[in-house]
Write a protein that binds this DNA or RNA. Structure first.
Lengths: 242, 242
DNA sequence: ACCTGAACACCGTTCAAGT
DNA sequence: ACCTGAACACCGTTCAAGT
């Protein structure tokens, strides 16, 4: 499948007419279609109907190829819009964008996490998050810490999502594991429900809200829930520069 | 290295006198010493001075071996003690135990996460966490959700820890990535500090505290313990108590 | 400049065969 | 019951050679 869509000049048996961009594009398509593990040098070569060494000539080592694939997808990303009127709402919205995006491109995200390059993929969205934090009055080390904290949460929930949907053998599922637990400190109701999968989106939302709420300066009058108050933040809400 | 420490009956060239336990033990030692990727069937066989097929005879497929390794470590775990007097303190303490343990056995944890079996390793600590939640009045789906949320955070911070300490090439480090960002919505101070690694332990602490605080019913009588104020939450992460 | 063919050093896994 | 040897189908990577 998935031939190169380049305008091949002379697709003879000798000259495949391949571009570096073609190789990266085919690799990205392969990953999106069949997952991170499907991206092998030999498989990709077969897909492009060339020899493995040709891949090496165009893109170098597999790690280089992976980075190029991630960068390619990052380029294609439309800048996600941040919603909300209060600072907290907007920060949570920016944080949720990272989650949504990672989930939307989970195959590439999984690939990126294998080489420790998830940030490469999410950097524009992280920038947007930090910008919202700034205008909410959080800057410096505090801003960095909330950002890292949010990234960690998103990464962790991706693991849960990965686990929920596939490939984990039945005997390692929540149900099987918690079925074997018998502890009199835990009520039967709780034990029962621990075997069931959570509503991931809602859970991500609640968690991000909690983390953000702990980091942002207090908004008075308001209890600690995630329906954000009407009152604006006391601390100098800087507007975004045009 | 790392010979089996079993009382070998007749260690001739023909009979290695291997036990299934010996194989699993050697595998665990190998992983702890050299990381998850060092555990290959051939490498393990060489370590035990037998043929690869011998490993298969004793433990079956690699995935089975991995599960056995995790189960073996889980058995060895001493039950971590939960500290604190208030419900929140104790829940946070139980949650922190999961983090501490995962970090202490990061190689095995990494191995477990490759096959989606981290819970197998942490289950006893999760049980302790759920028990604390129960006695704090959180049960049913709410207890499940906090538990999952905490697990996700821990898993995510492990990724950060992994990333911070090794193997990620310099051009993918925070410093390099954020050095390339130029956004006028973000102040120079923040931009500067985003390249620096956070204090992970403190950050985990703050994050877990935030997640727990959002989940536990408010405690009216207990005004100020060390972690959870009823009003402002500091923007800088809190240090761990000794 | 672009691509092939053969080769090296690894993987996980299976199967027949030895004692 | 326990272990070996040879083999299969994969990996990433390199190198000399072709046009």
């Amino acid at each position: 499948m998935a031939h190169s869509r380049a305008t091949v000049t002379a697709p003879t048996a000798r000259r495949a007419g391949l571009d570096r961009d073609d190789v990266v594009g085919a690799a990205l398509a392969l990953v999106e279609a069949e997952g991170a593990d499907a991206l092998t040098m030999r498989r990709l070569a077969a897909e492009l109907e060339v020899t493995t060494t040709t891949i090496y000539w165009h893109v170098g080592h597999r790690d280089d190829l992976v980075l190029a694939v991630i960068a390619r997808l990052a380029d294609r990303q439309a800048a996600a819009t941040v919603r909300g009127s209060t600072p907290r709402e907007r920060v949570v919205s920016a944080a949720r964008n990272i989650w949504t995006n990672a989930l939307a491109h989970r195959n590439v995200t999984a690939l990126a996490s294998q080489v420790g390059a998830t940030t490469l993929l999410e950097l524009p969205l992280e920038v947007a998050l930090v910008a919202e934090l700034e205008s909410a009055g959080v800057r410096g080390p505090a801003a960095r810490d909330v950002t890292r904290s949010i990234l960690a949460c998103v990464a962790g929930f991706l693991v849960l999502a990965w686990r929920a949907e596939e490939r984990v053998p039945p005997e390692l599922r929540w149900r099987a594991l918690w079925a074997g637990v018998d502890d009199d400190r835990i009520s039967p109701v709780t034990l029962e429900v621990l075997g069931e999968p959570p509503d991931l989106d809602a859970l991500v939302d609640a968690t991000l809200t909690a983390v953000v709420a702990a980091a942002l300066p207090v908004e008075p009058d308001v209890p600690t829930d995630r329906t954000v108050p009407t009152d604006p933040v006391p601390t100098e809400p800087r507007r975004r520069t045009p």
